[in-house]
Design a protein around this nucleic acid. Sequence first.
DNA 1: CTGAAAGCGCTTACAG
DNA 2: CTGAAAGCGCTTACAG
Lengths: 342, 342
Amino acid sequence: MARAPRQADIAAAAGVSQTTVSLILSGNTDGVRLSEGTRQRVLDAAEELGYVPDPVATRLASSRNHMLGVYTFASAFPTDVDGFYYPILVGIEEEAAALGQDLVLFTGTGGGQGRAHDKTAIRRTRVADGCLFFGRHVPEEPIDWLLGGGFPLVYIGRRDELDGRIPFVGVDYVAASAAVVERLVALGHRELRYLREDDDAPSSSDREKGVLAAARKARLAVRRIVVRATPAEVGTGLIARWRAEGVTAVVVEETDTGELSAALLAAVEAAGLRTPADLSVAVLGQPKDRPEVSGFEVPRRELGRRAVRLLVDQITASGPRTAQQIFLDCVPVAGSTIGPPG
Amino acid sequence: MARAPRQADIAAAAGVSQTTVSLILSGNTDGVRLSEGTRQRVLDAAEELGYVPDPVATRLASSRNHMLGVYTFASAFPTDVDGFYYPILVGIEEEAAALGQDLVLFTGTGGGQGRAHDKTAIRRTRVADGCLFFGRHVPEEPIDWLLGGGFPLVYIGRRDELDGRIPFVGVDYVAASAAVVERLVALGHRELRYLREDDDAPSSSDREKGVLAAARKARLAVRRIVVRATPAEVGTGLIARWRAEGVTAVVVEETDTGELSAALLAAVEAAGLRTPADLSVAVLGQPKDRPEVSGFEVPRRELGRRAVRLLVDQITASGPRTAQQIFLDCVPVAGSTIGPPG
DNA sequence: CTGAAAGCGCTTACAG
DNA sequence: CTGAAAGCGCTTACAG
């Protein structure tokens, strides 16, 4: 195959030095004056030869290649929870395109022999100018290593590992969850439950925090509010017990799989209850294809866009960067599954 | 922060040359013998200093960067037809991971001022070792340019532009469509229609070819079989006319948007007809979330996987490459919307 | 068995 | 206004 043209080839064609080609093509004309004729000759030759800068060489020499990494700890295109991550990716692509950045998807996690493999794969992200990360956990060592080396990175989702030094764009689940409980309280509910999965991701504990804060503020009995369960454990038995306890409203978390909220809604139906007449149900998030369910909408697309912007900010920032942590607000969804206690 | 250690630092610490360090660390010991003592000293020093190879430099020096480009003419993460492209991307990612390749998503098309922009953006794909393309059209000039330069590329979907020199992985719509018609004929249908969009993409004309071939072979009257229509034109009026003409079965193409098949199924229902009792309906493809519809399944995930494999083959092939064109078979979906003519 | 040297394709001082 | 040179951190012939 014919080799890709280099700056040297353009230089030969235009009768100038390779340095001049570099200066002209990179637009790096600070304090440098070049004759318009030379400029045009070089640009024409570049066009003629179909020149495309080699990003690897560019990067080695200057440390900018207009590529943003996207590191997902599982799969960038998950087959099970596609509905959840997809909008984030859409946002990332939109904003990257708008800012003239290409995206590098690191697939390294596929081979997967655990931690050791992660380490190598994560370090590979350095081929890009910076990298977006998402996943439920933070592999502290390699991330610390990247951070220590001044490598720009942004997490999607709140993270408090590494002494809060990880920049991220997260969702304000605390406020959104509290707002849902406040609405229920305003409707007159006094006995409610918060159903969550038994997994301590920040998004889960933030929701719990919001729920409890709002409950305390309304002086509700808080002791029995939080109920941890797997989707399999959610059935008519649980519903019956709650009814016996005088529960009039249930709030359930929505995770990436959406299984818990689906299980609850199914159990309520199986128990022959109507919402909100017999029981108010709100989801902390928005279940797929169920716009009638009360809760809130996570701004996923915006999450992707903001993460890209924060990352590019970091890359182009000149001074020492301070960890930036951004929270986005959720949009309340009125829905029709909550109402005054029956 | 202290600069990340380089091979030179290890060399200094171990009292050897940088070359030796490179040889030992890269395990590149073909025909080279190193004393075990030196080896151990170098490895210890590397460990001690926390050495990690710089991926950028490694790639510059070894001229392969293990990155595959993915060029979509619209958006890699489309917001409207996500269900269609997503499985292809899943397949691409899976196979890329299996082969140790990262993916570069070229987002350049977002800025979009038509052809000129395409050209630049497409040329940029050369930053990767090779590139996958998909989209309904082929921008001949830049693709020809890439091909001429020996740049490895693979299209997803059959292409016959550029004198058939474009390597691709396509779907055998001809055979799959013919098989559907053969099934209908075997059931006893003699008067059928093929409903297609008014757009001449290869995937549409291939379907038509298969339908007509099977119809001719069964000696059906072929003149009125093909009906071109937009989704908006498909309503109860059309159904009524077909009924009046004695039509007992309708075959409809499934495109990326799925609008045409959805419109037909809706019209049939609106006309108060049952399938297959009153009318047999088959879709050439598989409508989303309607597993009961008869037709065939396009192996989209496999399409992605095979495209990646073909691309990597091209990249690693040493001799002159010949254009490779691969067709994948569809999987018939029995479904329950076709039966003997009522 | 190991080192000096050239080169991957760029950028960036530094000289003219 | 433009060029020669060094350097980014590696790999890979080529000498000893």
